[in-house]
Computed example of a mutant assay.
Amino acid sequence: MKSLYPLLAALLLALASTPVHADAPAKPGLKEWKVPWENTRPRDPFVGPAGNSVWFVGQAGDYVATLNPETGGLKRYRLDPGTGPHNVIADERGAFYAGNLDGHIGLIDPDSGNTRKFRLEGDGPRDVHTMAFDSNGDIWFTEQAGNRIGRLEVDEYDFRMYPVKSESARPYGLVVGPDDRPWATLFGTNRLATVDREGQLREIRLPRDDARPRRLDITDKGILWYVDYSGGFLGRLDTNSGEILEWPVPGGPNAYPYAMALDDQGRPWFVETGPSPNRLIGFDPESERFSDPAAVPSGGGTVRHMVFDPETRSFWFGTDTNTVVRASLQ
């Protein structure tokens, strides 16, 4: 009789080399910092280049601020009344904020507090909404009421604007892909949008007519994830093949998923803003399983935007309950 050991060894080797489907993401730990400037709607945190400060804006308080997560220290930079800051992104040059109500992008010097304004020209709404850097350090952004996607070449102080053909499309969330193309949600429609390499704005229709995509993120391989706020779906667009897949979120049609971002494994996380308290939920694309919800301790009110910091494996977001939150992955 032949020995069974070679067969067993071969079987064990095959099992060891067989990919194991990941389980649902583990529920993260949440820590909140109370913002002392009451009823100012702190939002859109962004981890600074040094990693020791987190920038955010007070949309209803006309300020940009930093939080030191180690000490809990806060520093506020006051803006002109009526600025209505909506979003902030930062690099070695300082913090760029979206002057949503005043038609400009501002750059704050963290040391002096001095502000340089890049003002949009023309008539009609110029409501800079959500911004993202490209690889050159220039800025792509959306205008919700202006119905445009724009690009600011910072060094040249040069704006280039791309009108959206669909009326009242409400360009909203925006990210920049690995090839430096911007991708945006058109919250007033069931479409996404991008500006191609030839400089043409192109719209991508989603399968359901009543879908209203609000936030999105993209992997380095061009897999784009989005949340459908009105229908309660998580969606996936392969920007290479055009394939679109969707999954109902755990909270159902009244979940109103809003803020979302990808972690360092390419897994989408989003906040259901329908439930009170708001709930942070992750999704594993391999197992197609959702994580257990992590409730925002203060309730959240509405969590509108979040980012992922790969250095600390943490998400950051602001809340309408006047807090800034770090969600740390296990």
Rank of each mutant, 00 (worst) to 15 (best):
G58L: 12
G122A: 08
V175W: 12
S166W: 11
P49V: 15
E167D: 15
G82P: 10
L101N: 05
A50H: 14
L79Y: 04
M161W: 08
W55I: 02
Y162H: 07
G103V: 00
G124R: 14
V54M: 05
R148I: 01
A90E: 11
R76F: 06
G84Q: 04
V175H: 05
Y77S: 03
E156A: 15
E143N: 03
R148Y: 02
D123S: 12
G113L: 03
P69R: 10
D91S: 14
D111C: 00
P81H: 02
N136Y: 08
G113D: 13
E70W: 06
A169M: 06
D91H: 11
F56P: 13
N100S: 10
N147I: 01
R170N: 12
G82V: 10
G146C: 07
Y97T: 00
A145G: 10
P125E: 05
L74N: 07
A65F: 07
E156H: 09
H129F: 04
P125D: 11
P42N: 06
F56T: 04
G122I: 00
G103T: 09
V164Q: 01
V128T: 13
L79T: 05
G146Y: 14
T71K: 11
S166M: 09
T71W: 06
A145W: 05
G84Y: 11
V88T: 02
Y172P: 00
E121K: 14
P110L: 04
Y172F: 13
I89C: 03
G48L: 12
L101I: 01
E167H: 11
K117A: 13
L107T: 15
D123N: 13
T142P: 03
E153I: 03
P69I: 14
P85F: 06
L174T: 12
D109T: 10
R126S: 10
D134Q: 08
I149F: 03
E92H: 09
S112E: 07
S112F: 03
P125L: 00
A95M: 11
R170L: 11
G61C: 08
Y157I: 14
D138Q: 01
F96A: 12
Y157K: 13
D138H: 01
Y97A: 05
L152W: 11
P69A: 12
V57A: 02
P163M: 10
P69W: 06
Y77C: 03
R170W: 12
W140R: 07
